[in-house]
């Protein structure tokens, strides 16, 4: 057994998850592949969205994968960092907007 939870080399083995559940694993990868094709959004735009989400969900595999994907697509580091900020802003906004709930509850409980 590995001595740490994350091993960069595990990313290469991602495809193997189908081995223990072939049908839904394959369906997932088909879906995944389809999602990132050129569509109403360009593959480039989707790559930046994926990079932002990768940071929000704090997945080291996805961060590695979509940094590389961005490089492959010619995305600049400035664009990548702005995408990360967009994700971070939504994440902190989502925390802060709950402040309204706290304020509501406070007001309700207070005389």
């Amino acid at each position: 057994m590995a001595k740490s939870y994350y091993d960069p080399a595990d990313l290469r083995k991602f495809g193997k998850i189908t081995e223990w559940s072939e049908e839904i694993g394959t369906k997932f990868f088909d879906y995944y592949g389809k999602v990132f094709e050129e569509g109403a959004l360009s593959a480039r735009e989707k790559s930046l969205i994926a990079l932002a989400v990768a940071h929000v969900v704090k997945c080291p595999y996805c961060i590695d994968a979509y940094t590389k994907d961005g490089l492959q697509k010619g995305i600049t580091k400035e664009e990548m960092m702005e995408a990360v900020h967009a994700g971070a802003a939504i994440e902190s906004g989502a925390t802060l907007v709950h402040g309204v709930q706290m304020m509501n509850k406070y007001d309700k409980l207070s005389m």
């Binding site: 050129e38 593959a43 480039r44 590389k68 490089l71 492959q72 697509k73 010619g74």
Partner: peptide, 20 residues
Amino acid sequence: VYNPSGAFLPGDQVAMERDF
């Protein structure tokens, strides 16, 4: 000719051409 400046593969040629 575009070749990647680093340890990664080139992206889709058509999309790169459009961006360039």
